[in-house]
Amino acid sequence: MRAVTIRPSSARSLEVRDVPEPVPGRGELLVEGLAVGVCGTDKEILAGEYGWAPPGEERLILGHESLGRVREAPPGSGFEAGDLVVGVVRRPDPEPCGACAHGEFDMCRNGRYTERGIKERHGYGSECWTVEGDYAVRVDPGLEEVGVLLEPTTVVAKAWEQVERVGGRAWFEPRRALVTGAGPIGLLAALLGVQRGLDVHVLDRVTDGPKPDLVAALGATYHSEDIDRVASSVRPDVVIEATGAGHLVFDAMAGTATYGIVCLTGVSPKGRQLSVDAGTINRELVLENDAVVGSVNANLRHYRHAADALAKADRGWLERMITRRVPLERAEEAFAAQDDDIKVVITLTG
């Protein structure tokens, strides 16, 4: 079978090549791969900046944003042939740490977790793959064209959960939310904010293309002005930061309403320096009871919440988020950015 592979730590080593057909182990599903999404992490791996092959192997099969159809399922697994499924990305460390032992492997304390398509486990970017039944999530049959969005939706499902848990330290009834960035994570964060009944505002620098229309179709408000102006007019109770741009991170922290919560989901690049007034930031955080929390990855609970959120969403809106589909044999094209790209998907079937 064919798979999208790279040699970790070697830039531009992507190759679609033949690899052995997987053989399901005890308790594993055999799955026909339908699609994988491409995100910033995949691009970092392709650039040689990140990623580890399985022990004893030179190449890594890419793909952590998965969608597939079950071919074979073991008795008692809860799955049947024909089911649409997504594979969970992370696996707990083998010891395990306390968090992993309680099913919170997204919060692993010792860093010895593994991840499909990223860290020491082959990903889902192949024509066929296997996954443990305990790490597979069933997808609504009506989501065949867009179910590949489930994994990025888990990221924001966890982010919103983190916000609500932090808010739960006292009375908490947020009304307005600001999402910085209208890429896939930002748009999905806005979707879940709207589903929560919030007045959602999205900030991005582009002024045309599909992003403003997608935000408007949610019933949210799109902004392209300076963040200081937007934050001062919106006064958000919650900010979901989805860009990783350093200046936006600090401006978002300064722009919330009293008792505001900022959840950082974007990963900032290394090596860039900013001058910030740490004293003012500290003073505002303390005197306004503000909170800033980082959030990454997801556990099984977040996958189920994400599946529910996508099942409730407008299918046409989700389809518009996927702006380009690239066939497996031309997988490298998926990593070359084009104007108006939002989510690019590699299709694994003919």
Rank of each mutant, 00 (worst) to 15 (best):
H223I: 03
H302S: 04
L285D: 00
G271W: 06
A157D: 03
W160R: 07
R196V: 04
A278K: 09
P152H: 11
P152I: 10
P22Q: 07
K158C: 01
V163E: 02
A35I: 04
E28N: 01
C263D: 11
P327D: 06
T41A: 01
L60G: 08
R325A: 08
S126C: 13
R90K: 14
R176A: 12
G133V: 06
P236F: 07
I281V: 15
H102D: 15
G33C: 09
G111V: 11
G87R: 05
V267Y: 08
F79Q: 02
G279W: 12
Y124C: 13
G168D: 13
G294N: 11
A231P: 06
G111W: 11
K119P: 00
A307Y: 00
A245C: 09
A257S: 12
F172P: 02
T130Q: 07
E28W: 01
G117F: 10
V234M: 07
G37Y: 07
G246Q: 08
T180S: 12
G98N: 02
A242C: 15
F335Q: 06
V293R: 12
V16E: 03
T130N: 06
A73D: 01
T221H: 14
L29D: 04
E288L: 11
E32Q: 15
Y222A: 09
G40I: 07
E332Y: 05
V4Y: 03
T114E: 14
A159I: 07
G68E: 01
T256V: 14
G78Y: 09
L62V: 02
M107Y: 06
S77P: 03
K270A: 13
V4R: 01
K119W: 13
S224P: 03
D314H: 05
R235K: 15
E284G: 13
A73G: 10
Q273Y: 09
G37L: 07
P92N: 10
R109Y: 00
V146L: 03
T243Y: 05
W160Y: 13
D308E: 15
E95T: 14
L143V: 07
R175C: 03
A311F: 03
E127W: 00
R169E: 08
L285T: 01
V238P: 03
V276T: 08
K312R: 15
W52M: 01
G103N: 07
V179I: 13
A177H: 03
Y124N: 12
H102L: 15
A159E: 05
G350E: 15
E145G: 09
D93R: 05
R272D: 10
R320H: 11
I281M: 14
V179E: 05
L84H: 02
